[in-house]
Simulated scan of single mutants.
Amino acid sequence: MRTPHGQRLDANLKWLFTELPFERRFDAAAAAGFTGVEYAAPYVYPARRLRQLLRDAGLCQVLINSPPGEPGSPERSGSACLPGRGGAFRDGIERGLEYAVELGSEFLHVLGGVRPPDVSRDRAFAQYVVNLGWAAERAHGTGVRLVLEAQNTRDAPGFFLETQAQAAAVADAVRTVDGDGAHGVGLLFDVYHAQVAEGDLVRTLRTYLPYVQHVQIADPPTRTEPGTGEIAWPLVFDTLLAAGYSGWIGCEYTPATDTVSGLGWIGTQVAR
């Protein structure tokens, strides 16, 4: 699916088409006009089953997340920033890359994790850089690009990356450690999280677009589709267009009513 300006939209199947069981959402997304999908956690399904669903629906896989830990565990939101959890982090990246390669996913979102209260931010940052440096080396040559996402603390209390500046600092540090920017750690710019956490949305987007490899959208305050909340969406889409951003834009929102009816925003919220 594309906007009136030709920008590519993909469907996040964790959030859209939830009127249907997960395996039926692939065909529903294709029927609605999407050509790409993303979802956070493919690991409850065999990769070969997901690949078949993608192929049957004529869809491409855009993004998956690295595996989180069990609910309530220190790794529940990832382990990249956690000292002493290097084994869990590496195992997760190996599994994430295995799935990403099998599914043909363009991106693997590396979950940053929740910083424990007894771990300083500097120590967590240093651990994050070491882990991401290893992950970038491991991903090199797979065709999968790693992305990092800042999340707002209202929805994700304690999440290590709270701002785009922090995420960009990790990406910069990893490039320094790598000595090779081609290893490609970039940002997943989530418009909803950026607005809730920082505001000044368009200026923030313009500042960090050189780092941005993937974009996700939802409208605060209720995380529903564009046009239901507080963001001036035509300006956001114009900013991406003017900057030459040609990547995917992931629809990661809860439809205010049903998914298909909610897609009407594409004709009203993109072009000024």
Rank of each mutant, 00 (worst) to 15 (best):
G6N: 07
L13A: 05
F17I: 01
D27G: 14
F34M: 09
Y45D: 03
Y45S: 05
Q52H: 08
L53I: 03
L53H: 13
D56H: 06
D56N: 08
D56V: 03
A57T: 03
A57Q: 01
G58S: 05
G58E: 08
Q61L: 11
Q61Y: 01
I64R: 11
P67N: 07
P67F: 03
P67L: 10
P68I: 13
P68Q: 09
G72R: 14
G78N: 06
A80L: 10
P83N: 09
R85H: 14
I93W: 02
L97S: 11
E98F: 06
A100G: 02
G104E: 06
F107M: 01
F107G: 02
G113Y: 04
D118L: 12
D122I: 10
R123P: 00
F125R: 15
A126M: 12
Q127N: 15
G133R: 04
A135F: 13
R138T: 13
A139F: 09
T142W: 07
R145F: 10
L148N: 10
L148C: 09
E149V: 05
T153D: 08
D155Y: 02
A156E: 08
P157Y: 05
F159C: 03
T163P: 04
A165N: 11
Q166D: 12
A167N: 01
A171K: 06
A173Q: 08
T176N: 03
T176K: 13
V177I: 11
H183S: 08
L188P: 00
H193T: 09
H193A: 06
A194L: 11
A194H: 10
A197D: 10
V202Y: 03
L205R: 08
L209G: 02
P210A: 10
Q213I: 00
H214T: 11
Q216E: 12
Q216N: 09
I217L: 13
P221L: 15
T222R: 15
T224N: 15
W233I: 13
W233P: 08
P234R: 09
F237T: 00
F237E: 00
D238N: 11
T239R: 04
G247I: 00
G247A: 06
G247P: 05
Y253G: 01
P255M: 02
D258C: 11
I266L: 13
